[in-house]
Write a protein that binds this DNA or RNA. Structure first.
Length: 479
RNA sequence: GCUCCUUUCGUCUAGAGGCCCAGGACAUAGCCCUCUCAAGGCUGUAACACGGGUUCGAAUCCCGUAAGGAGCGCCA
């Protein structure tokens, strides 16, 4: 039991623990738009020492899929957006919804409507023809009879007059006239409850204090507030955050960005980098671009959230990902790099070596996937020489240098980057050539290509045995 | 069509009447550094949607217009 010593504050100022929720629908795969909403809700709860609830809104049984539920669960876990409660599933709360439905029917707060779909369609068509806003006209609102052969829906009796004021944390005061609202369906003909109704019951039952969601829900809010009032529940604080657009400024779609959040794991992004990118879409904290998780929690405030939609920019995400790889503890990057190495068939249990590889590679790759691909030559035996690189750099003159270099490397007392570097410089000096004249052929011989970390570090990490073997192979392959 | 929302560089944003002939970041161009590729540093190009007000003074306040978006479902 939580002791509440100060419950006697004036109305509206009572101390209330913050409770937020993320309520995705498993009718499509969770994408970055949803993730950002989840992030804002999570941050807000963490910032205020509150509770974060995960609730799966699966009342549409036709379109909900197990795959989508899996992506929500795995995605949230990968991102580290841990819930304090849930996941709840609305499909498991049907008894509760039926209870409220029965109560409202009994109290006259809701009623059965026996209109057929055809009838409703005709009504809509007529209204459109008259250039009116299409809406249900309440024709069954006060009827008590029934109509055989039609499974009735249940509609909420929305107030006819007055207005509903939404005090939104990002949009400010938004006023809706009740006369613009109609009696929405809260239970289908088959008895299953609908979204707007379930949300209201759930938010009330779960004690949600702050509803943070996409601004496509702003128009639903007055209806929900009316239902909350019918329930006798307190109205939460609303914050309708702007939507995320695709890179082209158009609505997010499968074609560009509306992919499963798990795709970002596969593409080699660090969870913290994705979160950092997403938090800066619609929110800012002065000029700060890079945030650790703790910094995000400390700085986040809904008051700083923008009103306008923002476009997703893949280049900036890439940049941030690299920034996070460079700032993070190498060991933590290793943890996320391993799956990518595994996908290339590379299993390495030497975490210390992997940490060194991370440090050597992170300033030249944008993703973990790229890091894994560019690190293949640290593992396995031989390397495949890129034909163009070999033709350009493994010239007879270069091979002559490499031959001498092989000897000096073989005789090195200790195999460190510093020792390798000294050997290279000595060779370059005796032949009066730049370091590049020997470094590039060497790079091609041991990595197969022209790109790698500084050559001395590269050799140290590849290891002497492999380096000598690869030099021998390059020398032997020469004409 | 009706109701609601939105509008600062290509993109993300700072800006809460004078600090702004608008700052930062990504991207982009140039230079420096350099054994490759990067990273890093420096420099440049680039924006207050438009029109009226209010005010000594407006990116900031008000009103229109335009353009986008959302909702108007027995979808969520």
């Amino acid at each position: 039991m939580v002791p509440f010593a100060t419950l006697e504050n004036a109305p509206g100022t009572s101390v209330m623990a913050v409770v937020t929720r993320f309520a995705p629908s498993p009718t499509g795969l969770l994408h970055i738009g949803g993730v950002r909403t989840a992030l804002f809700s999570w941050l807000y709860a963490r910032r205020h020492g509150g509770k974060f609830i995960l609730r799966v809104e699966d009342t549409d049984r036709e379109r909900s899929t197990d795959e989508a539920v899996r992506v929500i669960l795995e995605g949230m876990q990968w991102l580290g957006l841990d819930a304090d409660e849930g996941p709840y599933y609305q499909t498991r709360r049907f008894d509760r919804y039926r209870e409220v439905l029965a109560q409202w029917l009994a109290e006259g707060k809701a009623y059965r409507c026996y209109c057929t779909k055809e009838e409703l369609e005709q009504l809509r068509a007529e209204q459109m023809a008259r250039k009116e806003k299409p809406r249900y006209d309440g024709r069954w609102r006060d009827r008590t009879d029934t109509r055989p052969g039609v499974e009735p829906v249940i509609r909420f009796k929305n107030p006819l007059e007055g207005e509903v004021v939404v005090e939104d944390s990002v949009h400010g005061r938004v006023v809706f006239k009740n006369s613009e609202l109609d009696d929405l369906v809260i239970a289908r003909g088959d008895g299953t409850p609908t979204y707007n109704f379930c949300v209201v019951v759930d938010d009330a039952d779960m004690g949600v204090t702050h509803v943070i969601r996409g601004d496509d829900h702003l128009n639903n809010t007055p209806r929900q507030m009316n239902m909350l009032a019918a329930l006798g529940a307190q109205v939460p604080r609303y914050a309708h955050v702007p939507m995320i657009l695709g890179p082209d400024g158009a609505k997010l779609s499968k074609r560009h960005g509306a992919v499963s959040v798990l795709q970002y794991e596969e593409d080699g992004y660090l969870p913290d980098a994705l979160l950092n990118y997403l938090v800066r879409l619609g929110w800012s904290h002065g000029d700060q671009e890079i945030f650790t998780r703790a910094e995000m929690i400390a700085a986040f405030d809904i008051a700083d959230v923008n009103k306008a939609a923002s476009a997703f920019n893949p280049e900036k995400l890439l940049w941030l990902n690299q920034q996070h790889m460079m700032k993070a503890e190498p060991a933590s990057v290793v943890r996320y790099l391993k799956p990518h190495l595994a996908r290339l068939g590379i299993e390495c249990a030497d975490d210390a070596l992997l940490a060194k590889i991370v440090v050597a590679q992170r300033e030249r790759v944008k993703t973990l996937k790229e890091m894994a691909q560019n690190s293949r030559y640290f593992f396995g035996e031989g390397v495949e020489l890129d034909p163009k690189a070999a033709a350009k750099h493994l010239t007879p003159e270069a091979l002559a240098l490499l031959g001498q270099l092989r000897a000096s490397l073989a005789g090195l007392g200790e195999w460190t980057a510093a020792a390798v570097h000294a050997a290279l410089e000595a060779l370059a000096a005796t032949h009066s050539v730049g370091l590049g004249k020997v470094a590039q052929p060497l790079r091609v011989a041991v990595t197969g290509n022209t790109i790698s970390p500084p050559i001395d570090q590269t050799l140290e990490l590849i290891g002497r045995v492999r380096v000598l073997a690869r030099l021998d192979a390059a020398l032997a392959a020469a004409p």
